[in-house]
């Protein structure tokens, strides 16, 4: 019997493994970036799950509530999201350049053109 409070973490694990698997197994560079995104997203969910306090509300000051969720992980993950977006953007930009240079975005075809890359 799984504690319902742990569902988030199961999702995190599934997403993390799925993303990681895509990065490793796919030869298409764009798909690698997609996989990397899924992988990072799982970590975002992980952090946000930490911040949840049972029976507490969103961390917006209001007289009616006294218990709030921990806002710090949210803030942290905002930073991580920015980093993730930057990484994806840079990765995609590199893919564009790679496509210009090699005419393909498939890893095996690139290796065929430049054996030691």
């Amino acid at each position: 019997m799984i504690d319902p409070g742990l569902y988030n973490y199961w999702i995190v694990v599934v997403l993390m493994m799925a993303g990681f698997f895509i990065v490793i197994s796919h030869g298409n560079l764009v798909k690698k970036i997609v996989g990397l995104n899924i992988f990072q997203t799982s970590v975002f969910i992980l952090y946000i799950s930490f911040g949840k306090v049972t029976d507490a509300t969103a961390p917006i000051l209001d007289e009616a509530y006294s218990e709030y969720s921990n806002p710090l992980p949210h803030v942290l993950i905002l930073t991580a999201i920015v980093v993730g977006v930057a990484t994806s953007a840079l990765g995609l930009a590199l893919i564009v350049r790679i496509r210009e240079a090699y005419g393909t975005v498939e890893e095996d075809e690139i290796i065929a053109q430049d054996p030691d890359s």
Binding site: K32, F39, Q40, F50, A80, G91, I95, I98, Y102
Partner: peptide, 30 residues
Amino acid sequence: RRALTAAFQYLIMGTIGATFYLIGVGLLYA
């Protein structure tokens, strides 16, 4: 042009490494 693929490879591995680090920090914070 191999600099591009090298950078890409590094990007993938580096991001995975950094994300691992992030997970570790998260767990410690928890």
